[in-house]
Computed example of a mutant assay.
Amino acid sequence: MTEVDWYEIRLRGQLDGSWSDWFGGFTLTSESDGTTTLTGPVIDQAALHGLLRRVGNLGVTLISVNILRS
């Protein structure tokens, strides 16, 4: 069984939970500081790059990408 890495991605701006499917099932949390945190599993680096391309295509500012556990 392959280990799956979990990531936390912070974006500038507020996105509601309806974007979860678009971001591959990630959990979206609107923070009080006006940012959104996406949290979820990423199977490999190609999937991570695809997720980051979605962020870029949306036109929001990427604040940080952190691995939570691997």
Rank of each mutant, 00 (worst) to 15 (best):
M1C: 08
M1Y: 02
T2P: 15
T2F: 10
T2N: 12
E3S: 14
E3Q: 14
V4E: 07
V4Q: 06
D5F: 11
D5V: 02
D5H: 09
D5Q: 07
D5K: 14
W6E: 04
W6K: 00
Y7F: 12
Y7Q: 11
Y7A: 07
Y7C: 05
E8P: 00
E8N: 04
I9P: 05
R10T: 09
R10A: 08
L11N: 00
L11S: 05
R12C: 02
R12A: 06
R12K: 14
G13T: 09
G13Q: 15
G13L: 15
G13Y: 15
G13I: 14
Q14P: 06
L15V: 11
L15K: 12
D16K: 13
D16L: 06
G17T: 14
G17I: 12
G17N: 15
G17D: 14
S18N: 13
S18K: 09
W19V: 02
W19A: 07
W19L: 13
W19R: 03
S20Y: 05
S20F: 03
S20C: 08
W22L: 02
F23G: 02
F23Q: 06
F23E: 03
F23N: 02
G25H: 07
F26G: 01
F26V: 01
L28C: 03
L28H: 01
T29V: 15
T29G: 04
T29I: 15
T29W: 11
S30V: 02
S30G: 00
S30H: 08
S30I: 01
S30C: 04
E31Q: 13
E31C: 14
E31L: 09
E31M: 07
E31I: 02
S32H: 01
S32L: 01
D33L: 03
D33V: 05
G34I: 07
T35E: 09
T35Y: 07
T35K: 14
T36P: 00
T36D: 03
T36I: 14
T37Y: 12
T37C: 15
L38E: 04
L38H: 10
L38F: 09
G40N: 04
P41I: 08
P41E: 10
P41V: 09
P41H: 01
P41W: 09
V42F: 00
V42P: 00
I43T: 11
D44C: 03
D44L: 10
Q45L: 12
A46D: 07
A47P: 05
A47N: 10
L48C: 10
L48E: 01
L48P: 01
H49F: 07
H49W: 13
G50N: 15
G50C: 12
G50F: 08
L51K: 13
L51C: 03
L51T: 04
L51N: 12
R53F: 04
R53M: 06
R53W: 06
R54W: 11
R54E: 03
V55E: 10
V55M: 09
V55Y: 12
G56Y: 15
G56N: 14
G56P: 03
G56S: 10
G56E: 09
N57Y: 12
N57C: 09
N57G: 13
G59W: 15
G59E: 13
V60L: 12
V60P: 01
V60A: 11
T61W: 15
T61M: 13
L62A: 07
L62F: 08
I63K: 12
S64Q: 04
S64A: 09
V65K: 00
N66Y: 03
I67W: 03
I67A: 12
I67V: 10
I67L: 05
L68I: 11
R69N: 04
S70Y: 11
